[in-house]
Amino acid sequence: MEASATTVTAGRSVLERSAASRLPDRVLKWGLTGLAAAILALLAYFFIRLIGESGSTFSTFGLNFVFGNDWDPSRSIYHGLPLVAGTLITSAIALLLGVPVAVATALYVNELCPRRLRTPLALLVDLLAAVPSVVYGLWGILVLGPKLLPAEKWFASTFSFIPFIGGGTPTTPNYFLAGLILAIMILPIVSAISREVIATVPSEHKEAALALGATRWEMIRMAVLPYARPGITGGAMLGLGRAIGETIAVVLVIGNAPVIGAHIFNQGYTLAAVIAAEFGEAANTPSHSSALFAAGLVLFVLTLIVNIIARWFVVRGSRGRRRTGGAAVEAAAAAVGEVG
């Protein structure tokens, strides 16, 4: 980059290009810079408008909007704890189920599987992200939910001693179904980032472990995982961000009941789902639509925080290890964007 910069200056000074012939260059440079600045301005404008639109809700309900447990549009009471709780419960289930499988997949693809199978396997996992969320919702509510119900009933009665998991009578749809669908949806992004991060582990480390007599698994445990841990954590956090914000699949499989379910096989609601489910009726009621914008603001801030922490981990996990490590990981994150 330094070299090209000096070339430009040298070229200009030697050739003495006229001001007129430099005009297109300036237009391009400032045009593109303006474009980039416009994107930032747009995001800032969005944030300000969102705060403005949800202002009346926050001034009416204050912290009760997040911590109060009573969401009842018919009485114009918007205490959103059921939504926040549902978002956290379903995302936690998604992480618990999705991340181990995603990391294991990445380890298998990068370290164990025959070289020929690498690309096709990675492609198949990536294709999970290509399925639109409305299709996951369709499949989840019409096929997976009913098929899973007997297993859920067995599970709830067998493990009835575990609070919040067993004991009650499972209904479909429920938190667990939403969490499972979310786990499937975050699997590709967590797996793609884990693959990128695992690929940055220096082969010297792995060869050293093998040369010392480590088995393949010991090599993974002692050389690969410690090195890749920050990046994998970042990938899991990015997955968490996706799970928190996923709307259409969740609204179809969570039941949209504005209560905190007694256990994970109960119906619930999430911040994202409430916007999709109630917006149609809310458009004519200012207090209701303001409450939904407020839900959107909480959701936005939540995903923002999670994403910022995730980026920090991912960058830390790949900084200075491979020249384009960070960029490659970011690109994987962008390319495997899940479909909402």
Binding site: A36, I39, F46, L50, A272, T303, N307, A310, R311, G340
Partner: peptide, 24 residues
């Protein structure tokens, strides 16, 4: 900064863009 916020945009839930266009 631009790079950072473009990354932030990838993490914004898609329904938020719908809300934004609805408001604006």
């Amino acid at each position: 900064v631009v790079r950072y916020f473009i990354d932030v945009m990838t993490g914004v839930p898609s329904i938020m863009f719908g809300l934004f266009i609805f408001i604006v």
